[in-house]
Computed example of a mutant assay.
Amino acid sequence: MIVPKFGVGTFRLSGQTVIDSVKNALSAGYRAIDTAQIYGNEAEVGQAIAESPVQRSELFLTTKIWVDHYAPDRLIPSLKNSLSQLRTDAVDLTLIHWPAPQMNVDIPELMQTLLEAKKQGLTQHIGISNFNIALTQQAIDSIGAEHIVANQIELSPYLQNEKLADFLQAQNIDVTSYMTLAYGKVLNDPLLMQIAQQHHASAAQIALAWALQKGYSVIPSSTKIEHLTANLRAQDIQLSSEDMLAIAGLERNGREVDPENLAPEWD
């Protein structure tokens, strides 16, 4: 597994809020940070890292290329701009943020341009985000599965995406789960609360432990140090096969993020 199992997300965080969140996460022990060009916070993430006592070499930093920069002559310059804002010579992982099928994106050309960015040393690894099976296959056919280290997809106890996750794992492509708490909707789930009680944990910790036990990486975000610290403790929870089976029954195709023109036809 190339992508660290546990990272901190920065989606919807900006200004001083994201600076504080990243600094708190680093002081709590996080060493992976996830951002994206469209989040508009790469400069603040870069500032937080620069002001933290943690060395850049200890971190795994991910960003994502936005659709406006998919043209072959725009992708690499946009990534260089991201690196400048993040105050680093290279990121650890660069993802294509959305496949945007309605925009007639040329996936093979896009992946080859991203691979060129890797060859130029701008990013250590490359991958995709929000790709379904068919589009992942296109990416694989273009540059080879060995170059695609991850697909970052929405996954939660309410959206388990088994078919896609199984396909990715069979291809040795890491699965990164975002929205693992379904915008907080799983936090009041009676079953998760019941399992949490047995493990002296919270429903959030159980949802994260479930994803980790499935072999996925997670990137929950929080502005509060106590939540950041509590989330990390999900790594110490060992769910039983009965717990996992019970959580499997929560599947309801509860997708939270499905932007028109950007999202593919989901599996």
Rank of each mutant, 00 (worst) to 15 (best):
A165M: 09
V175R: 09
L232D: 03
Q55K: 07
G249S: 13
N24G: 13
T180H: 02
L208C: 07
E146M: 15
T113D: 08
Q85M: 12
I19N: 00
N188P: 07
N130E: 08
P4M: 01
I33Q: 04
R74C: 02
I225M: 03
E260A: 14
E260L: 14
P157A: 15
G254H: 02
R252N: 14
L114W: 09
I148F: 06
V149F: 04
R31D: 05
Q85S: 12
L13F: 04
Y39R: 05
N130C: 02
Q169C: 00
S14Q: 14
K64F: 10
W66V: 03
L79C: 09
A28Y: 02
D92V: 01
E109P: 10
D92P: 05
I76V: 13
R74T: 04
G46I: 03
P101G: 11
P101M: 06
N172T: 15
G127H: 04
A248E: 15
N132A: 01
K118I: 07
S82V: 00
N253V: 07
R12S: 11
E154V: 07
D106T: 06
A145V: 13
Q37E: 03
Q120T: 13
H199Q: 15
R252Q: 15
K214F: 04
F167T: 09
D20P: 00
L250R: 02
Y216P: 05
E251P: 06
D106G: 11
V67T: 15
Q137M: 04
H227F: 12
Q16H: 06
V218L: 07
A90V: 05
M193T: 11
D141V: 13
Q238Y: 03
Q171L: 10
A230W: 01
Q171Y: 12
Q124T: 13
L26M: 02
L232K: 06
I128V: 14
Y70T: 06
A263I: 03
L13Q: 08
M103E: 14
L61D: 00
Q47Y: 12
L114S: 06
E44Y: 05
W266L: 14
E242M: 08
E162W: 13
V8E: 04
